[in-house]
Each structure stands twice: as structure tokens, then as C-alpha cells.
Write a protein that binds this DNA or RNA. Structure first.
Lengths: 283, 283
DNA sequence: TAGTGGTCTAGACCACGTG
DNA sequence: ACGTGGTCTAGACCACTAT
């Protein structure tokens, strides 16, 4: 509750108006002059300038990241945030609108605004695009083959924006859908963020892996970028997925990012797409 | 344009809210005359509730669809629309916000709001996700193999939401990137929407196919849904793409929709992904 | 009944693009 | 200088949820 934001402005300059303590620059002076309750100042068109609501959004994001409000929890109401940051409710609303659009929070009328979590059904399938030809999408059973700590190879390091040789955790696993081995994953995680992750923990955990990461390691996957190709199964993949060598497989190379667009995971998946397909919507 | 018309609302009263009255309150015509400016008067607006801005959004969409404002053109300013629909500027703004989020229009500060078009670079690559390993994304050279009118097979008809045997246009083509045959497309279009489409027209056209459809046939692709698999090249595909039979290819089955979520195109593509990959972002 | 987000309005000023 | 979208504020009422 370190509220009292007072200013986070860098160089407030007295000037036109005040919208609060933030460094805005724009703004509006509503109506008659308001006796500034707080030493409010306003910025001159600063070289670096961002709309007030963007600054509020950044502040809220920071609190999300720091864990002040945890996944599943409700964040303060718009009114509360407005008074904390000394801006109008409408400005807070616009900030939250964007956060909701990015799926960082979810609004529920009559209840409040909640931090999204990978435990929710809605969120789960944002990162699992493999859909069965028949039946509903679901999470398969995970069989962990391996989970060990090692030094990052050059290419993984590059993707994770770390140095070659830095510590990473490698996981290999097979996903079973309806009794059929369908996905072979090879995963690299930032070593620093996943101290204490073991094959045992992965095996015991029921549910999406990202939910475990979020709950146990405080690392939340926000977005991911995938490169998809068709490849032929090599001997290893063929054995683990029970398909002939040379069978066409979907290769999905994913980099996942957490707050601040920092990459924390690289994942290479091989999907058997005879009874499943990868679903994508262009809009 | 004089605008005035088509009020769908009762008068927005300062003190009392009217949103409910609008949709439900059918008869709540403010009063005087309503010269039906647009062909869509909106007699019994709604069987169900819908926020005012959603109704405005629907009206704007209808004008987009009817061609009142064509791709590339500017739509009336927020103020104009506000006065035309007899709502506040803020309400129009919220309607346009959503249309912009759906990529139906694009706002440009200081200039106006414009109907998006498939001629724009930005839009082009929303529907072309194949990216070269090296170099910038670009549109390849299209080689049309075939373009003929025929009766829809059962499955295509189902996807297009028409009856088996209804008229469709079938196109087959190969896309060349840097001199290499990379994509083999088989396309079915709603016959009713594409009268007069010939192989010649397709061949003469330089640029994205969707831009031709938009300019010549008034059919705009708004969104699409894709199902992606890895498959083995059969003899035909192997010949046309110059790869060995059995090579892994990316199979992309797309259904494209125009206004009102009406399907107008089914497309089956086979991609060679040795020097290209399918790019996708999860968020 | 109280609290939360959702909608709507009204008016002010700012930044951008164009004459 | 003017018009357009962009930001900000303030206050009112509505709809949903929980107590």
C-alpha cells in the first residue's frame, strides 16, 4: 500500500493544467480551476511523453509484476485506483481496458477486475492450439521423460536473450491424447526463474504446465510467438510418438514471454496431426 | 449529406438515461418526422438488449457493407456520425474503437477514419503468414493453373453454408517465392459473389488476390479460420512443387468470412516449409 | 442494500495533418 | 486557421453480484 503516488514525474513543469501527479502532458482541465489538492504540476510537452492512461497502465502492470495482486485475485476498484493515482476514473478505465485486451486482467461486471491465471479454462487454450478432429479440446496426460539443468547452447541462449553457457532447465515430455502419443516437447527454461524445478514436481502436477510455473515459480507467460513447419519424423521422434520414420509432423517452435516482453521459455514441439489439427484464427 | 435521420433513439435526455429505451423502447420515437435517410430505418430495432454503441456499430457496419463508404475512403467524422445518429460523440467513438480493433477501419490522427483495404501493406500480411527464413515477407508470383465454375461438392458446400451442387468458382494456383514453387492453393469461392472471374483476370492482376476480390467483386475478406496439419506430398503436389513424393508439407485449410460472418471462400493450401515458416503469435 | 464494472453524455484541451 | 482524432475529466444512471 505504498500509495501516495505523488509524482512519478520526472520533470513536472508548471504549466497548463494538472491532472494529477503524473507526468502527463495533455489533459484537460475540466472546468473551472480546481484548487489542486496536491502539489500538482503539469508537464510541459516533454520530449518523452506518453498519455496519462499509458502511465497508469504501466504502474498497474508493475504492481501485477511485483505480485502486489496475484493471479486470481481482484485488483482494486477503478475508483480506488483513480484516487491512488490521482486521476479520474475514466482514465483508469482506459488503462484497464488495454490490460484486459491483452488478457492480463479480466473484468467481471458486478464483481471486480481480476488478474488472469493459467488455471482458467479460457486462458488455458490460448496456448494450446491443438484441437481433436472429434470431441472437445482438452489437456492430455503429460509423461515427463527428462528434466535437468544444463548450460544453454548458443541458439537457445540467443532466443532467451542470455549468454551461451548460462544455466537453463531442459524438459522433455510426451503428451497423450486419448491414449495416443501426440506431442513431443523439448523445453528450455530460464535457469534463474526456475530453481528447484524437478521431474517429480512436473509429474505430480495435474494441469497445464504454465499453471505450475505461475503458482510455484511466479513466472507468468503473457504471450508467445510460434514458427510452424512440416517436418519428417526422425528415429527418436518416431519411436516416442509411435509413427513410422519419415511421417510428416508439425514442428512448432515457440518462444514465450513474461512481463516486459522478456523471453523465459523456448519450446520445440512435434505434433502428430492425423487426428488433431492446429487451430488458428486470422483477424 | 444532411444527415439527420435515422434516429434509433429516443432523445438522449440529460438527466435520465435512455439506453434501455432505445432498443427496447421501440415506439419511443422522439417525435417529429424521421425522414429515413438510409434504407435501414430500424423499425423494431431489437428483440434483445444491446448497448447504444453496439447499435451504432451495427449501423456503421451496415454502411460499410452496403458500400456507402468504400475501401480506402474516409468515413464521416465522429461529430458527423454523432449528429446523424443522434448520440454523443463519445458513443460513436466507442463504436469506432471496436471497428478499429476488428480492423474494419483505421484511424489516422489529424486526418480521419478510413475503411481498411487489402491494398495496404499492413493488412496484406494479416492473411499471409508464410515468412521466409531470410529476407522480408513478400508476395510471391502467382501462377494460375485453372479457374472454372462448377457445382459445389458436399464438403465445400457445407463449409460455405450453401447447398451441394450450388455454383462455385474453383481456382488452382502455385505461388513462387524467389523462383521456388512454395505454395499450391486450391480455392473455392461462392459462385454468386464472383460472377465473371476468369483465369485471365487472375493472371493479369498484380497484387494480393484479396485486393482483386475487394476491388472487382465488392467482396471483402474480414476474417478467416485455419486448420493446420502436416501431410505427405502426393504425386500431384510433388510435381507441382518440385519436391519428392512423400515430402512433409504444411496443409492449411482456410475458411474466409465477409461481413456478417458469412463464409465466402474455402482454401486448401500446401506449403513447402524448408525455406519458409508459418508465423503465429499467441496472446 | 452496497459495491463493482458498463454505458452515456458533455465539454475542454492537445497533437496532428492540411490548407 | 481549421478540422480530425486523441486524451482527460466529471457526473449520472444502468446492470450485475453479493450480502
Amino acid at each position: 500500500m505504498s500509495s501516495l503516488p505523488t509524482s512519478l514525474t520526472g520533470a513536472p513543469a508548471p504549466g497548463a493544467q494538472d491532472s494529477g501527479a503524473i507526468t502527463a502532458g495533455v489533459g484537460a482541465q475540466p472546468s473551472p480551476s480546481q484548487p489542486p489538492a496536491a502539489p500538482a504540476v503539469h508537464a510541459v510537452p516533454s520530449p518523452t511523453f506518453s498519455p496519462l492512461y499509458q502511465q497508469i497502465k504501466a504502474l498497474i502492470t508493475r504492481s501485477l509484476q511485483s505480485g502486489e495482486w496475484k493471479p486470481g485475485e481482484m485488483i482494486p476498484s477503478e475508483m480506488e485506483l483513480a484516487s491512488r493515482y490521482k486521476v479520474s476514473q475514466g482514465t483508469v478505465r482506459k488503462a484497464i481496458d488495454e490490460l484486459a485486451a491483452e488478457n492480463l486482467v479480466a473484468r467481471r461486471q458486478g464483481k471486480g477486475t481480476f488478474v488472469t491465471t493459467h488455471h482458467e479454462d479460457v486462458v488455458k487454450f490460448r496456448f494450446l492450439r491443438l484441437v481433436p478432429d472429434e470431441g472437445e479440446p482438452h489437456y492430455g496426460a503429460s509423461h515427463v521423460l527428462e528434466c535437468k539443468r544444463l548450460r544453454a547452447p548458443a541458439e537457445i541462449a540467443r532466443l532467451l536473450d542470455i549468454r551461451t553457457g548460462d544455466s537453463v532447465v531442459q524438459i522433455r515430455r510426451v503428451l497423450n491424447f486419448s491414449g495416443e502419443s501426440t506431442v513431443l516437447d523439448e523445453i528450455w527454461l530460464l535457469g534463474a526463474n526456475f530453481k528447484g524445478l524437478t521431474a517429480e514436481k512436473l509429474t505430480e502436477w495435474k494441469g497445464p504446465m504454465y499453471a505450475l510455473f505461475e503458482a510455484e515459480f511466479g513466472t507468468r507467460m503473457i504471450r508467445a510467438s510460434e514458427k510452424i513447419r512440416a517436418v519428417a519424423a526422425d528415429q527418436t521422434a518416431a519411436d516416442l510418438l509411435s509413427v513410422p520414420v519419415g511421417s510428416p509432423l508439425l514442428s512448432v517452435e515457440r518462444v514465450s514471454y513474461t512481463y516486459g516482453d522478456r523471453p523465459v521459455e523456448v519450446r520445440r514441439g512435434l505434433y502428430v496431426t492425423t487426428r488433431h489439427y492446429y487451430q488458428n484464427d486470422l483477424s
